[in-house]
């Protein structure tokens, strides 16, 4: 498995980019996500690989009282029904289990996903089902499709709300620039 520095150096090199990573006039430090939990200030952070083409990780941040799970690039199942899998066989489940707030990939409508299986992203139905199987308290959909306009996103949110049935929890919403959430 290549290290983060090697991966970035590949992108910052000709013919992809004229300037090499080593040419950048700065002291660069690269931190590969540890496999064990680590701490930054009062936060405990855990990273784990999730299903997506190429090495990809999701994160869980916790201060002991509340937790936030961030899985922006994720296709939790490939050609399998999420509802049929035991929790320990669901990609990302260990990060999202009983989290207070889940930021999750919700790029496609269910119809769009049918033509994009294996691209590494979730349908709105996947995102909602993943949140439900993980017992996440709140779901915020993220990684919006760049071809979706406001009307499309409203439809995605409406579909997520219809699917949610979240046992009294707040319905899913869409991430947007400048959004602030309190845990």
């Amino acid at each position: 498995m290549r290290r983060l520095q090697e991966r970035l150096a590949r992108y910052l090199s000709p013919p992809l980019f004229p300037v090499h990573l080593s040419d950048i006039p700065a002291t660069l430090s690269f931190h590969d996500a540890p496999t064990a939990e680590w701490e930054i200030g009062d936060l405990r952070i855990r990273a784990a690989p999730v299903s997506h083409p190429g090495p990809t990780i999701g994160y869980r941040l916790s201060d002991g009282a509340h937790s936030f799970t961030y899985i922006p690039d994720h296709e939790p199942v490939l050609g399998t029904e999420l509802g049929e899998l035991p929790p320990d066989w669901i990609s990302g489940h260990e990060l999202a289990h009983h989290t207070d707030l889940l930021f999750h990939d919700g790029q496609y409508t269910e119809e769009e996903y049918e033509r994009r299986v294996g691209w590494g992203h979730s349908s709105v139905a996947h995102a909602v089902e993943f949140a439900r199987r993980s017992d996440a308290a709140r779901l915020v959909l993220f990684h919006h499709d760049p071809l979706h306009g406001d009307a499309d996103l409203d439809a995605v949110r409406g579909r997520a709300e219809a699917l949610w049935n979240g046992n009294g929890a707040a319905p899913p919403t869409l991430a947007h620039e400048g959004m602030e959430l309190e845990l």
């Binding site: 784990a48 299903s51 490939l78 035991p86 320990d88 990609s91 489940h93 260990e94």
Partner: peptide, 10 residues
């Protein structure tokens, strides 16, 4: 039950 490694899931 321990969560399975992603490689095993795949």
């Amino acid at each position: 039950r321990r969560h399975k490694n992603l490689v095993l899931i795949l």
